[in-house]
Design a protein around this nucleic acid. Structure first.
Length: 563
RNA sequence: GCGCCUGUAGCUCAGCAGGAUAGAGCAACGGACUUCUAAUCCGUAGGCCAGAGGUUCGAAUCCUCUCAGGCGCGCCA
């Protein structure tokens, strides 16, 4: 006899709607019962028939297909969405657990380019999802505010820099210096040595070095915050790499105590050959530290400070090896929580004419992309809806939403080439499409409110109305039911997105919902004469609207009522 | 050289704890606005799921090899 769990695992969703809502393929039973699978399916179907949850259970060849009771689902979904409001799909599963999401982490003094959008947006959404599921979340912007690059920048500034220019236009000016450094260093390798020297000084607390560094950091952060504000993104901590500079010696010492450190060519390394990995360089021959040293230190610090349940790094896939090494070292140090550290990688962004390169100055500024998207939205509004109120605000919500949404609509791991055409496309599976669907639903509701919609929305006994005075049978057409099914599945989709740390799983579901709604909207008039029918349909519209809004909110995207 | 990732429609991608005829969007073509926002909807066309073997009742999905592209492999982050 098969266990219940095993049967549960077999359950699948049929490829087509008319094949039912759930199905169990019966091939696996063939051996046990020594009968052909289609016969088994038929016998089971004949025996269970139907019940209150399933309006019919039939076999289609070797498949056992279940058709759920549409009316029951309609009622339960609509009531549930009403009761939970903007919390529909949320959960308390994460209660008492803290999840750290490290994301965005731009490098100081470098432009916030299109390449940064992925970590920024993906991380932000993951944080939203964890929070929605009841986890305590800590969003950390692990600023790249340390390392040899600052040596380079200090040298460049001292050699060619101009204070006023930097004050006026910090990032481009600092970038120019950084680019110039690399140009000059090709001719004059001594510059590289100087840069390392200055970084060493910075680590040792040299006053001039620290002051310059602090200044670079401040002006850069000001620029970054402007972009975060545009996207509505906030952090709980900006403890970047520099924050750990005074905490590293203790960690290096600890590594030594645990006999993990080895001397090699004047540097100190952790040998990982046993684990099929190249060695990790912990301390350079000149005594200064490296990225991985700071990351190990940061992880230990975070465990002590936050006692995290998960420690998530939203960082590009180029750094796969880095994280493997780092997690392995934490494990070797005896930390059993090393397994709770998770690297969430994503693919590269390149430009049409080749790779991006900060050093060569080949970058697309994220701010320009956002601004262009807003501009285009403004044009579309002027063309399609010139009487719209709050045009500017809505142009921002839609334009910026479009750019963010695009990042969230594919799996993380794929590389992609930035293209203005794709980013500025507002049709089909895009942010504006979903927002438009929401605005459209809202518009119907507003129209209805004028005369007879009030009895649903404003009723003091709305629960009784929903419970007893709605004919949910009227929402069982295919187009209506597919909307309800998508909403019904949303809570588990959110959990799946969390488990896989994949925002696009949620985005996909929201697109599906918008598509299903648009089909329904097109097929059926909502503001009909029959009050019973109108009430049922309006409730479906209201439910859809609210869920779209919740979904977009999780993606960090606004849902304007009009556009 | 070694390791990791990717390869599905012209383009961008879903589907990959094996299951029913491989799905969307864009682009193309043809339709639908005096009626709830046409940033919409409907239809047509488009596929040797990179290739070759294998496992299985069944493979886009699992295994092996090959090819193509990307990334990474001690003093950058």
């Amino acid at each position: 006899m098969l266990e219940f769990d095993q049967i549960l695992e077999l359950i699948e969703i049929p490829p087509q709607e008319d094949m039912g809502d759930f199905a169990v393929p019966c091939f696996k039973f063939a051996r046990t019962f020594k009968k052909p699978p289609d016969l088994i399916a038929k016998e089971i179907a004949d025996n269970i028939g139907s019940n209150q949850y399933f309006e019919k259970i039939v076999n289609m060849g070797p498949y056992l297909n279940f058709f759920i009771n549409k009316e029951m689902i309609a009622k339960s979904v609509i009531m549930d969405v009403y009761k939970r409001g903007s919390g529909y799909g949320s959960s308390s599963m994460g209660k008492g657990k803290t999840v750290i999401v490290e994301f965005s982490s731009p490098n100081i003094a470098k432009p916030f380019g299109i390449a940064h959008i992925r970590t920024t947006v993906i991380g932000h959404v993951l944080r939203n999802i964890y929070k929605f599921l009841g986890y305590e979340t800590i969003a950390i912007n692990h600023l790249g505010d340390y390392g040899t690059q600052f040596g380079k920048l200090i040298v460049a500034y001292k050699t060619w820099g101009n204070k006023e220019l930097v004050e006026k236009d910090p990032i481009p000016e600092l970038l120019k210096l950084y680019v110039k450094f690399h140009d000059e260093a090709e001719k004059d390798p001594v510059l590289e040595d100087k840069a390392r020297e200055w970084f060493k000084k910075l680590e040792e607390g040299n006053k001039e070095a620290v002051e310059l560094w602090q200044w670079f950091r401040d002006v850069s952060l000001r620029e970054f915050n402007r972009i975060y504000e545009m996207m509505g993104i906030e952090f709980d901590s900006y403890a970047g790499e520099s924050f750990y500079s005074d905490k590293m010696p203790a960690v290096i010492e600890l590594l030594g105590e645990k006999k993990l450190l080895e001397h090699s060519q004047g540097a100190e390394i952790v040998d990982l050959e046993k684990y099929d990995m190249p060695p990790a360089l912990i301390r350079k021959s000149d005594g200064s530290t490296l990225y991985i040293t700071r990351d190990i230190t940061a992880a230990i610090y975070r465990k002590e400070k936050y006692n995290f349940y998960k420690n998530i790094y939203v960082v590009g896939s180029q750094q796969n090896l880095h994280f493997q090494q780092m997690f392995k070292i934490l494990e070797l140090m005896g930390y059993d929580w090393a397994k709770d550290c998770i690297h969430v990688p994503f693919g590269m962004v390149s430009l049409e004419d080749g790779t991006m390169s900060t050093r060569k100055g080949r970058v697309v500024f994220l701010e320009d992309v956002l601004k262009k998207a807003v501009e285009k939205t403004r044009d579309i509004i002027a063309e399609k809806n010139p009487d719209l109120k709050d045009k500017e605000k809505i142009a921002e919500e839609v334009g910026i939403g479009a750019v963010m949404f695009q990042e969230l609509s594919h799996s993380r791991i794929k590389d992609y080439t930035f293209s203005w055409d794709n980013t500025l496309s507002f049709e089909g599976e895009t942010g504006p499409y979903v927002q438009y669907t929401h605005a459209r639903a809202n518009s119907v509701l507003e129209k209805a409110a004028v005369y007879d919609y009030a009895d649903i929305l404003d009723s003091t006994n709305i629960e009784t109305v929903l419970e007893k005075e709605v004919n949910y049978k009227l929402l069982t057409e295919d187009e209506a039911f597919s909307i309800l099914k998508i909403i019904y599945k949303l809570p588990e989709v959110i959990i799946k997105a969390m488990e896989r740390n994949e925002p696009f799983i949620l985005t996909r579901q929201i697109i599906d919902l918008a598509q299903a709604f648009n089909r329904f909207y097109h097929e059926y008039p909502i503001l009909v004469d029959d009050p019973e029918l109108k009430r049922a349909r309006l409730l479906l519209v209201l439910t859809t609207k609210n869920v779209l809004k919740t979904g977009l909110a999780l993606l960090g995207i606004k849902a304007p009522d009009k556009m």
